[in-house]
Amino acid sequence: MVAQLYDAHHGWLSSWLRKRLGNNADAADLAQDAFAGILLASRRQSLPNLREPRAYLTTIAKRLVVDFYRRHALERAYLEALALVPAEHAPSEEQRLIILQSLQEIDALLDALPAKVRQAFLLSQLDGLTYAQIAAEMSIGVRSVKRYMAEAFRHCILAAP
């Protein structure tokens, strides 16, 4: 089933991605990622009967494009911050790659949280606000903040290797 989908629509998907990315190499990579994801999913459960395979592929591709741009924005922000670091304190290329991969994993982890849970978690962990301050900032009760924080911590613990 996946092989037939690939044979029939890989060229079309690559072209669709190329129009959005303006780059053949990135389009080819994302097209492969789309089909690799479909193949992995098909091993866990059978693929649904696709009456509109291009719509299915477009949905997958749109998510991949969003992730692609998010990764690049994160990388640009990291490199801009790194440019401000004196050369003698700059991390090695290997350390840079590890840091960038870690930032991407953290970004994906936070993105998977519901918006209010993510907001409460970031206000606590990045801004150092107390639960009462978070409640006031978000116009919710402290009890809701506690629930959001428990959910965020549970999500982080379950994501840990």
Rank of each mutant, 00 (worst) to 15 (best):
N23I: 04
L103H: 00
I38H: 00
A112P: 03
I38D: 01
Q4H: 15
L57T: 02
A55I: 01
I99C: 06
R63A: 14
K116G: 07
L74W: 04
N49K: 15
T59M: 12
F121M: 05
E75F: 05
E151A: 06
P86V: 10
S46W: 09
K62E: 14
Q101Y: 09
Q104P: 03
C156T: 06
H155Q: 09
T58E: 10
M1E: 07
S14Y: 05
Y78Q: 02
D26Y: 04
H72K: 13
M149H: 14
P48H: 02
V2Q: 03
D7F: 12
C156K: 03
R63M: 08
L50A: 04
A136Y: 09
S15H: 10
L13P: 00
P53T: 03
Q133C: 01
A81L: 09
Y148V: 00
D111T: 12
A160S: 15
A36T: 11
V2G: 06
L17G: 02
A160Q: 07
Q104S: 08
M149T: 07
H9T: 06
P86D: 13
Q133H: 01
V2L: 10
G22C: 01
D127S: 07
N24D: 12
L110P: 02
R18I: 09
E137V: 11
M138W: 02
L50T: 04
T58S: 10
A115V: 14
S144E: 09
N23V: 05
A112E: 08
Q133W: 00
